[in-house]
């Protein structure tokens, strides 16, 4: 295996709080990312994903632990590391006083790159981001999806070796998300290392080769999406609803169904190799749910299993 481009070992970030114990945002995280890999940090809001990203992006100093990005320590080589990274922050921070193409030109110059090279690259990236016809537009006039694509194009202006994406599609409509995923998938095919945070299961399943599930600053599990589903869930999930007053009572009668049963306020989940089989068993026992759904198991189920909570609350 080639040397990792990112390696963290017991990474900790805590912030002092007045008259109280320090707030620990990241609490001993360890993982490695191989070159060309697409790696995800999956977890709810406040899990410590963005803080981890900022430390890797050399804009936040770690409290303790080891961190190695492209073979360098961010504490000493911040500018060198940042020069090799592309950053897509959670909130767009495009330059509103500049036009679309100017945003790319000016940003490229921040890296000290030659003017001609930046201009050529800007035109390529506008094509890539499907914004070529918006080159002279004001940033304010772009849609949310377009702004996001421009932010990604901007992050690629220095031909980064690693692209850091903090919740790349949060707040976008389904169509805009799919366009964005398609662009990110192309980057991955071209060999760019992607590190992304998300709290969307489908996004992680679409884009990540491997991921860690993070909760309260700690890693709960690590593996490929399929791997995690195999380990922490079943092949299929049967979701049944008996009405919010009935769910708990019914749950008692179906204990032992499938591999596991989870009772949520609004529904009951039965984890099994065959959801249909469990549903037949249920009907045979005289239980008739208001609605039932058999679906493939997803990362959402993994998360629920690991933390006992829904991912998006």
């Amino acid at each position: 295996m080639p040397a990792p481009v990112i390696a963290t070992q017991n990474l900790v970030k805590s912030y002092p709080v007045k008259n109280s114990k320090d707030f620990v945002a990241v609490d001993g995280i360890s993982f490695e990312v191989a070159p060309g890999e697409s790696f995800g940090l999956l977890g709810p809001n406040g899990a410590g994903k963005s803080t981890t990203m900022r430390m890797i992006g050399a804009v936040s100093t770690r409290t303790s632990g080891d961190l190695d990005v492209l073979g360098l320590d961010p504490n000493r080589y911040g500018p060198e590391i940042r020069g090799q990274l592309g950053v897509v922050p959670q909130e767009n921070n495009l330059d509103m006083e500049l036009k679309v193409r100017e945003n790319l030109l000016v940003y490229g110059r921040y890296f000290g790159l030659p003017r001609a090279r930046v201009a050529r690259r800007a035109d390529e990236l506008l094509e890539f981001a499907q914004l070529a016809d918006k080159a002279g537009a004001k940033v304010d006039d772009l849609s949310g999806g377009m702004k996001r694509r421009l932010t990604i194009a901007r992050a690629l202006i220095n031909d980064p070796r690693i692209l850091l994406l903090d919740e790349p599609t949060t707040g976008l409509d389904p169509q805009a998300r799919h366009i964005l995923w398609d662009r990110l998938f192309r980057l991955k095919e071209q060999g760019t290392t992607l590190l992304l945070t998300t709290h969307y299961m489908d996004e992680a399943e679409q884009l990540c080769d491997r991921l860690v599930v993070v909760d309260k600053g700690r890693i709960m599990a690590e593996g490929s999406p399929a791997d995690l589903i195999r380990r922490y869930s079943s092949r299929e999930v049967l979701e049944v609803r008996f009405g919010s007053t009935q769910n708990a009572e019914v749950a008692g009668r179906i204990q032992g169904y499938g591999e596991r049963v989870d009772v949520l306020p609004d529904r009951i989940l039965v984890y099994s190799d065959s959801g249909e089989h469990e549903l037949e068993r249920m009907t045979a026992a005289g239980l008739h749910p208001i609605t039932s759904l058999v679906r493939r198991s997803s990362l959402e189920d993994v998360f629920l299993r690991l933390t006992g909570r829904n991912l998006i609350e």
């Binding site: 492209l70 073979g71 360098l72 000493r76 080589y77 500018p79 060198e80 090799q84 690629l156 220095n158 031909d159 980064p160 070796r161 980057l187 071209q190 060999g191 760019t192």
Partner: peptide, 17 residues
């Protein structure tokens, strides 16, 4: 899409210190 591949040591040599 990948840029000039600088090895860590070349980057470090031109850096910080």
């Amino acid at each position: 899409m990948t840029g000039p591949q600088l090895s860590p040591s070349t980057i470090a040599a031109s850096a910080g210190s």
